[in-house]
């Protein structure tokens, strides 16, 4: 059970962007997708969600291809957390989260007391209940990202697919979002697939890494083996060194340092 990619090649108009991808994303696991701009990370996301047919190979979600699911059944499996964008209308943060309940509602009904409770509890778990009455458009980037995650969680999916959840966030907010991601995967058993541009974030959170190279090659495996100074140099075309850094308490993290020439 989970999301399985079998020799999947995605792209547009029958032209694949990458080699075949074989990977399994399972519940309770964090997977990071890394690679330079324009190599097909977002295209992979669109294909897995069934918004784009695969050029070759297949996607299996709990054993069935996305085309076998209608929108509502799909929403029960996978929730998508988009990048923070401007909204045309100023909904309250609570209403934003409440909209995540739509896949559980009949066509002509609007959310009831149970939906409101779920929405509010989700916000509480994320530590953003105090934002409930505020206008989404007036929140900071980090708060908006947290609201979008809460919205996806109110959908009660098995998987979260996140498109650069830490971009546009300051250091503190980046770590707060990563903490939430770890909590969701370890405690709630939700499978997380996220696109990121920070190799450090993969080292901090990820069980599995899918690294895209410019020439369409793909490398998949556990974080330490997949993200090396060699592979990162090949992927991004710049020299990268990987080192261990320790804080005063003796906790060590992996850092990636790019060189400018």
């Amino acid at each position: 059970m989970g999301i399985e990619l079998k020799a999947l090649r995605c792209g547009y108009h029958g032209r694949p962007l990458t080699d075949g991808i074989d990977a399994v994303f399972s519940a309770g696991q964090v997977s990071c997708i890394l690679g330079p701009n324009g190599v097909g990370k977002t295209t992979l996301f669109r294909t897995v969600q069934g918004n784009l047919p695969p050029v070759d190979g297949q996607v299996l979600i709990d054993g069935k291809p996305p085309a076998d699911y209608d929108k509502r059944m799909m929403a029960d499996k996978i929730a998508y957390v988009p990048q923070v964008r401007s909204q045309p209308f100023a909904y309250s943060a609570f209403n934003m989260v409440l909209m995540g309940r739509v896949s559980h509602l009949k066509l002509f009904s609007s959310p009831g007391q149970i939906d409101r409770e779920i929405a509010y509890e989700t916000m509480e778990q994320m530590g953003i209940a105090h934002l409930a009455a505020k206008n989404f458009t007036q929140l900071s980037g980090g708060e908006q990202q947290m609201v979008l995650i809460a919205r996806a969680l109110a959908q009660q999916p098995k998987f979260l697919m996140m498109d650069e959840p830490t971009s546009n966030l300051d250091y503190g907010n980046q770590m707060q979002v990563l903490r939430q991601i770890l909590m969701l995967s370890h405690e709630k058993g939700i499978g997380i697939i996220m696109i990121t541009h920070s190799p450090e974030h993969a080292f901090l959170s990820s069980d599995q890494v899918v690294l895209f190279f410019r020439n369409g090659k793909i490398s998949i495996g556990n974080t330490e083996q997949t993200l090396t100074s060699d592979s990162l140099r090949q992927a991004y075309g710049i020299p990268v060194e990987i080192c261990q850094v320790q804080n005063a308490a003796g906790i060590s993290v992996t850092a990636c340092v790019p060189f400018i020439n």
């Binding site: 669109r46 969600q49 918004n51 209608d70 929108k71 509502r72 799909m74 929403a75 029960d76 996978i78 929730a79 998508y80 988009p82 964008r85 909204q87 045309p88 209308f89 909904y91 209403n95 909209m99 995540g100 739509v102 896949s103 066509l107 002509f108 009904s109 609007s110 959310p111 919205r151 959908q155």
Partner: peptide, 23 residues
């Protein structure tokens, strides 16, 4: 009138709204 709450969902991008289960 019956669909009025659901109209809210259209203020998100189509891919975003359809990932939430809306046709």
């Amino acid at each position: 009138y019956l669909l009025r709450w659901r109209i809210n969902l259209l203020s998100f991008s189509d891919e975003e709204a359809s990932s939430m289960g809306v046709n």
